[in-house]
Nucleic acid binder design. Structure first.
Lengths: 155, 155
DNA sequence: ACAGAATCCGGCTTACAGACCAACTCATTT
DNA sequence: AAATGAGTTGGTCTGTAAGCCGGATTCTGT
């Protein structure tokens, strides 16, 4: 569940989870996977079903009157796309248009699928390179003043 | 797990773990090894699987909206390359292009593989010499303001 | 309600990266 | 100088990714 992979989306907006990660899904009997928006950067996050359960339930329980909390809930919960994995065959994931646009993924282009341990991130290659070399992306969210309840969370 | 070795990478981008360290892997029943970027200098770090588990799980649990934390997670977790060791044969490790570029390793050149006790470092020879004599590398990262949670960690 | 169109999904095929295995060279030791 | 062990190289073969294609399902407009 670590590391750097370049993969591509086909004309039907599908991509496959790299084979080296499949064992990790199978051995914990994970049958589903959730893709959603990253609240700070133009990228997507991919969680295993069990991880998603933790994160989403924590996020739901945060106090709902704080505007920042509500923004996070909208972004993360409201855009979640649940996919069932086919454990025997290739693990194909269909990306909804809203998410493709958000992460600026053009069809038939290469993009990055990056393993971060308990989750994956999906990035447009140019955005990733820019961000890694210290650049600032037009769409990123800076200096968010976070309520204490969120500061204790790891997404 | 200490000391200074010259190694080389072949045209298939492989290098072999110096024989004197192999016993250390075998006797603790380590079956895997992880190579990743050093967040400060243009060099690579090599961890035994058990060491990597500690470091990566600590890093994952840090607060996920802090931009500095995310930078570290991207660099260290996102570029990790996990290799399964074949205990019977020679221990060959494949270095992905991203990591070779980062540490400025050209094919068919000699590099340094330096044992630091619980980890190894891989350096381009010129960069290492420059750094050891007090020089500053173009790509190194200075004066990063780190959140307290990170200051307590050792990578 | 129906026909045509667009979208979705699985199977099949091919090219290629990476794993595996084996051999060769060089250095060191006896 | 022979033998052993280490590092390095090379060939082969398997498994994976990704393109292609056809069938199924859903959507749309009439």
């Amino acid at each position: 569940m670590f590391g750097y992979n370049t993969i591509s989306i086909d004309q039907k907006h599908r991509f496959s989870i790299p084979a080296k990660y499949r064992a990790d899904f199978l051995k914990t009997n994970e049958t589903e996977l959730v893709v959603t928006k990253d609240p700070q950067y133009p990228s997507l996050k991919v969680y295993k079903g069990s991880e998603w359960k933790n994160i989403s339930s924590k996020l739901q329980s945060l106090q709902g009157l704080d505007p920042i909390v509500r923004n996070l809930q909208w972004t993360i919960l409201g855009n979640a796309s649940v996919t069932d994995l086919d454990p025997s065959g290739r693990m194909l994931v269909l990306l909804p248009e809203e998410l493709r646009n958000y992460a600026e993924l053009d069809n038939d282009n290469k993009f990055l699928f990056i393993g971060m341990g308990n989750k994956f991130e999906i990035w447009n290659t140019d955005n990733w390179n820019l961000r890694q070399t210290g650049g600032t992306l037009a769409t990123e969210i800076l200096d968010v003043v976070l309520p204490i309840s969120i500061k204790e969370m790891s997404f």
